[in-house]
């Protein structure tokens, strides 16, 4: 009965939302969004502060925001403050997981599965590759799809692999903590330096370079590496917390 009622309700609500959106003349139909009316138009044209004309990959330099990946430009430059908040959310929830699951962790969680030698060694080999990919993705966030968050997750995945493939493995949690702390603090410090030098928080104080080159976009690659390290260490921390328990 309860389930049926819930079904009816959710169906009803879904139908109402759909029809309401459908009848809403101001709401653009799927695929008919007019970007020209939106703020994102300026992000694509990079003409928030001044109009650089047509931006051409590999040629235009000195843009207000340098990444070739426009999403990165938004995430790490135009709306970098959101990203700081986002990092904080992840930070505080990782911290919360650590708080909730106890701090006196000594040993791995007992699981029935015992990996064999091949798996252990093989996964260690794979670990390096995944780690490197993660770092690569973080560093190239301003050029290609990806960036600090996927890169960081990938770094954490490599740790997860080690955890799963070896039931005795423990990472040095203390190291993660230091890394996390330094990366986070640096992010904020970069912001504050920007405030001191550039007059506003998180302003891009470095030269943005030529769009499309690896060493371009000013602080964005730095920020993304920091985010990558931070996210990686945080998620690794979370993994560690879930896979260990109190004991000898």
């Amino acid at each position: 009965m309860k389930n049926f009622l819930a079904l009816i309700l959710t169906l009803f609500l879904g139908f109402l939302i759909m029809s309401s959106l459908n009848n809403n003349i101001a709401f653009p139909k799927f695929g008919e969004a007019n970007i020209g009316d939106r703020v994102s138009d300026a992000y694509i044209d990079r003409d928030v502060t001044e109009n650089p004309g047509d931006v051409i990959f590999g040629e235009t330099d000195g843009l207000e925001s340098g990444p070739a990946n426009i999403v990165t430009a938004i995430v790490a430059d135009y709306r970098s403050f959101d990203t700081l908040g986002e990092v904080t959310v992840l930070f505080v929830s990782a911290l919360g997981v650590a708080l909730l699951l106890g701090t006196k962790k000594q040993k791995r969680l007992e699981i029935d599965f015992h990996p064999n030698f091949m798996l252990r060694v093989g996964s260690k080999a794979l670990f390096g590759v995944i780690l490197m990919t993660g770092i690569y993705i973080s560093i190239h966030g301003h050029l290609t799809p990806g960036g600090g968050f996927p890169g960081g997750s990938m770094i954490a995945t490599s740790m997860l692999l080690l955890y799963l493939a070896d039931d005795n493995f423990r990472a040095k949690v203390k190291g993660f903590k230091i890394l996390e702390s330094i990366a986070g603090s640096l992010y904020v410090l970069i912001g504050i330096i920007g405030l001191i030098i550039g007059g506003s928080f998180l302003v891009n104080i470095l030269d943005t370079g030529v769009i499309g080159e690896l060493f371009s976009a000013g602080i964005i690659p730095i920020v993304y590496v920091l985010i990558g390290l931070k996210v990686g260490s945080e998620i690794s921390n979370v993994i560690d917390n879930f896979l260990t328990e109190e004991g000898a």
Binding site: I44, D82, V87, G212
Partner: peptide
């Protein structure tokens, strides 16, 4: 919304990058 050697100018039709940036935040 990524400029590459193939799509090397911003005068093309890109999808709106802002929701993508927002969704990244939302996912995290």
């Amino acid at each position: 919304p990524i400029m590459t050697t193939n799509h090397n100018t911003n005068s093309l039709i890109y999808v709106d990058p802002l929701p993508q940036a927002l969704v990244l935040t939302a996912i995290v």
